[in-house]
């Protein structure tokens, strides 16, 4: 019964999302597209950061690679159509992630986080400097495409595919193995899990999703520059969206992206100048009170008929993590 209700609700939501371009202004649609692209990035980050527990802090690198590959293939002498170009970007990102992942996924904790951050910084500067290909800081211009609906539906399609992928992943051997790595790498190894292989796969998956988001954003924005497509804000947004929603859950990244985009848009409209400041406050509050995300409020406990989430649980989170 409950399951049927959930499926009905989901289908209703889906219908609403499909019909949305007819219901809202093209400006509003842009916001929804932005939310979907953020959800896509967050879904990707969720594989490595959420399920596997590796704090990847440089996924914007793959966003950038996806954007540049897509853009460069669409212009110049090749004039590749958008979707093949996008696929090429995703493939290249996966390849780079595999090659980089093999050495840096051996690092742990802060060291892994900063190594990924460093890779993103270095790539940004390469894009900035490699004039003959990337046109340096001036950037490249893609063919113009103005139909907002195209981007909205493409992003929606990807997010739905992402949801299906994540759901399949979480039930698969691969997903199970990745979670085991997150919980305890030694235990995982003893259970027969090839930890290196699994980590690299999860990292490459996250790169593919970031690249898709990058390519799509590039086509939508037309203009691609290193400053815009390698900025750490994207990395942060995908992490924050995942954390807010619930890392290592199927719906968490999408839910988190929705909440983040909602807050962000609201704050943007009310306090234009203080916008980033308030976002900073939101991050801080979320981390202090709900370090495991919204899905802990809505998720498991309720399903199994145990006591629902109470406000006092917020303080319990704090008590569990502080030092006296």
């Amino acid at each position: 019964m409950k399951k049927a209700a959930a499926i009905a609700g989901f289908l209703a939501l889906l219908a609403l999302l499909v019909a949305l371009p007819r219901l809202v202004s093209s400006y509003k649609l842009l916001t929804y597209t932005r939310f979907l692209i953020l959800a896509l990035m967050a879904q990707g980050w969720n594989f490595i950061g959420g399920y596997t527990g590796y704090a990847a802090f440089g996924n914007v690198a793959y966003f950038g690679i996806g954007a540049y590959t897509t853009g460069l293939l669409m212009i110049g002498k090749w004039h590749v159509p958008f979707f093949p170009a996008l696929a090429a970007g995703a493939l290249l990102s996966a390849l780079v992630a595999i090659l980089l992942g093999l050495p840096i996924l051996r690092l742990k904790g802060h060291y892994f986080a900063i190594a990924t951050l460093g890779v993103a910084e270095a790539l940004s500067q390469v894009a900035d400097t490699w004039d003959s290909v990337t046109e340096g800081s001036t950037g490249i211009d893609l063919p113009l495409k103005t139909e907002g609906e195209f981007f909205y539906y493409t992003a929606l399609g990807f997010v739905i595919v992402g949801l299906l992928c994540t759901a399949a992943f979480s039930r698969s051997k691969l997903g199970n193995g990745c979670v085991a790595i997150r919980e305890d790498q030694d235990a995982a190894r003893m259970l027969g899990i090839n930890t290196t292989l699994f980590k690299v796969i999860a990292y490459a998956l996250s790169a593919v999703f970031a690249a898709l988001a990058g390519g799509l954003t590039a086509y939508q924005n037309i203009h691609v520059t290193p400053g815009d497509f390698f900025k750490i804000d994207y990395t942060l947004q995908m992490i924050i969206a995942t954390i807010i929603g619930g890392a290592g859950t199927v719906l968490g990244p999408v839910l988190g992206a929705a909440v983040f985009q909602l807050l962000s848009t609201y704050v943007w409209s009310k306090f234009l100048e203080l916008h980033p400041t308030i976002l900073g406050v939101i991050i801080v509050l979320f981390i202090v009170f709900l370090p495991r995300g919204l899905m802990t409020v809505l998720g498991r406990k309720r399903q199994r008929g145990e006591r629902p989430f109470r406000m006092s649980d917020l303080l319990a989170n704090v008590r569990a993590h502080r030092v006296t």
């Binding site: 904790g109 986080a113 954390i243 981390i287 202090v288 370090p291 993590h321 502080r322």
Partner: peptide, 11 residues
């Protein structure tokens, strides 16, 4: 949050 997972202090 000092004893929360690494990502918490990082973020």
């Amino acid at each position: 949050v000092i004893r929360a997972p690494l990502l918490a202090t990082f973020l």
